[in-house]
Every structure is written in structure tokens, then in C-alpha cells.
Simulated scan of single mutants.
Amino acid sequence: MLPGRDDEVTMYFQHSDAIWRDFPELAPGLIFAPGISTDVSVDDRLARFGEIAAKRLAIASEGELPEIQAWRRAFSKMGLKPTRYRCASESLLRRFRKEGSLPRLHPVIDLCNAVSIAYAIPVAVFDASRISEYVEVRHAAGDETYLTFSGETEHPPAGEVIFADALGNAHARRWTNRQSGYSAIRDTTTDVLIVAEALHDTARQDIESLTATLSDELSTLWPVTPKSAILAPSAPRFEFAGT
């Protein structure tokens, strides 16, 4: 998507009132970056952020980190067993601790995963062209559709926290547990929506740091000008340009 195109529409991301009510400690950071491609190297960034994660894991396991403990409490509050369903950053940290590295998928995914383990905060990245009108983090009605990475279709049960769009696509299940294959980043992806969310005591300042760091990395690696914001109950919506 190029600036000034006639087919641009205004899209948005937000959390439902019920999510803000149940999790007032929530601090979300949003980034929209149009113009992403695969022809960049992120090797030095992965090494730098991986070193930060390794130093933290040398002192405490991922389950002992305050960022992860806060998400475990949230999963318990949602009725999920936190050692069965883990937030994305905990899953990445577990794999990084065991294997010493993370799988390489796409430069922007690899960068977001590296930032995620450095901060121990879930970072989701979506192909914005696969989103219909908006994304709202809300409780499922029970009729939404979730596409797994293996191509299977699921319907999250009513009450589960999902990332839903206007067509009832569930772009993530169990909040920060697992993204959908439907809006996964592909080699043809150009416009990305990045969502980072935290719940721990210093969540807001850490999200501000993460969002600024990731925005700087994006604008350094690609010829893009990211748009970013930190959301709050008083300013709950992030608007971005879609097609």
C-alpha cells in the first residue's frame, strides 16, 4: 500500500470495554508499518536481542519473570490452565532456552520474536491486508472462524478472548496464546499490524520502550515510517490505513 492511494480505508484496533474492565492493568502498544519486504537481513538484531533474553534466563526461568507471571495470572482468570496454554512470549522463551535460537520465518516475524523474548512480552504481527475493517480483542460469541496453521478450521467457544474482525475471523485465540494462519505474514506481505500487550507492574513503561525500539528497528531496516500508539481506557482505539 502506497501513501495517497485511492483505495485506502481507515481501519482500527481496539479492546472491548469488558477486557478493559477485567484487566485494568493492561498496557497495549500498537504499530502499523506499510512497505515491509523480505530483502533485509536482521541477523545482528536477532543476536543483540537474543543476548538480552539469554542474560535474563541465566538469572531466572521464563516462568519466574514478572511479565510472564502476569500473563499466567490472566490466563488463570480466563479459566485456562497457564501451564497448558501459554502466552506467546513464554512459549518463545521456553524454546529459546532449550534450543538457543528461534526458527527463522520472515525478517519481520524474526525481528518481532527477538524483541518479544528480550522484553518477555507477547508481540503479534499480522498481515493487515487479511483484516476486515478492524480488530477487536473481545470475548467470542461462538460463531467466529479461526484458521490453524495446518489449514484446519476451528470455532472458538463463546467467552474465549479472541482477536476478531468485521467478518468474524478470529486472528488469535486465547488472547495472546496463538495467532491464526489466516493473517500470518507471507513473503508477499507488505503492510503489517504489530500488537504488544503487557499486564505486569511496569507494563506501561516497558510497552513504551518496546514500541519505540521496534519502531526504530523497522524504520532502520525498511524504508517505512511506522505509526505507533500506546492505548489506554481513555484512548482505546488505534487507527491505521488499510485497503
Rank of each mutant, 00 (worst) to 15 (best):
residue 1 M to V: 07
residue 2 L to N: 10
residue 3 P to L: 03
residue 5 R to P: 01
residue 6 D to P: 03
residue 7 D to F: 11
residue 9 V to R: 15
residue 10 T to C: 11
residue 11 M to H: 12
residue 11 M to F: 11
residue 11 M to N: 10
residue 13 F to Y: 15
residue 14 Q to A: 15
residue 15 H to I: 06
residue 16 S to L: 06
residue 17 D to T: 15
residue 18 A to I: 08
residue 19 I to P: 04
residue 21 R to G: 09
residue 21 R to F: 03
residue 23 F to L: 14
residue 23 F to W: 10
residue 25 E to G: 11
residue 25 E to W: 05
residue 25 E to F: 06
residue 26 L to N: 14
residue 30 L to N: 08
residue 32 F to H: 12
residue 33 A to I: 05
residue 33 A to T: 06
residue 34 P to A: 03
residue 34 P to E: 00
residue 36 I to M: 03
residue 37 S to H: 14
residue 37 S to Y: 00
residue 38 T to K: 11
residue 42 V to N: 09
residue 45 R to V: 01
residue 46 L to T: 04
residue 48 R to W: 07
residue 49 F to S: 04
residue 49 F to Q: 04
residue 51 E to K: 10
residue 56 R to L: 14
residue 57 L to Q: 07
residue 58 A to L: 05
residue 61 S to P: 05
residue 61 S to F: 00
residue 62 E to K: 06
residue 64 E to S: 15
residue 64 E to N: 05
residue 69 Q to R: 15
residue 71 W to Q: 14
residue 73 R to W: 02
residue 74 A to H: 06
residue 77 K to T: 08
residue 79 G to C: 11
residue 81 K to R: 12
residue 81 K to V: 10
residue 85 Y to L: 06
residue 87 C to S: 07
residue 92 L to Q: 14
residue 96 F to R: 03
residue 100 G to A: 09
residue 101 S to F: 03
residue 103 P to I: 05
residue 103 P to N: 10
residue 103 P to G: 10
residue 104 R to K: 14
residue 105 L to W: 09
residue 106 H to F: 10
residue 107 P to G: 01
residue 107 P to S: 00
residue 108 V to Q: 03
residue 108 V to S: 02
residue 109 I to Q: 13
residue 110 D to M: 06
residue 112 C to D: 02
residue 120 A to R: 02
residue 121 I to K: 04
residue 122 P to W: 04
residue 123 V to K: 02
residue 125 V to D: 03
residue 125 V to A: 05
residue 125 V to W: 02
residue 128 A to I: 14
residue 128 A to H: 05
residue 129 S to F: 06
residue 138 R to V: 06
residue 139 H to V: 03
residue 142 G to S: 08
residue 144 E to I: 12
residue 146 Y to P: 12
residue 148 T to L: 05
residue 153 T to H: 02
residue 153 T to Q: 14
residue 155 H to Y: 13
residue 159 G to S: 09
residue 159 G to D: 05
residue 162 I to G: 11
residue 162 I to D: 09
residue 164 A to Q: 15
residue 164 A to H: 07
residue 164 A to Y: 03
residue 168 G to Y: 05
residue 175 W to R: 05
residue 176 T to F: 09
residue 178 R to Y: 02
residue 178 R to I: 09
residue 187 D to Y: 09
residue 190 T to H: 06
residue 192 V to K: 01
residue 193 L to S: 07
residue 193 L to H: 07
residue 196 A to N: 08
residue 196 A to R: 02
residue 196 A to D: 04
residue 197 E to W: 00
residue 197 E to M: 07
residue 198 A to S: 15
residue 207 I to K: 03
residue 207 I to V: 13
residue 207 I to Q: 01
residue 208 E to W: 03
residue 209 S to A: 13
residue 214 L to D: 07
residue 220 T to K: 05
residue 223 P to H: 12
residue 224 V to P: 11
residue 224 V to G: 08
residue 226 P to T: 09
residue 230 I to G: 06
residue 236 P to K: 04
residue 239 E to F: 13
residue 239 E to C: 13
residue 240 F to W: 15
residue 242 G to V: 05
residue 242 G to T: 05
residue 242 G to W: 02
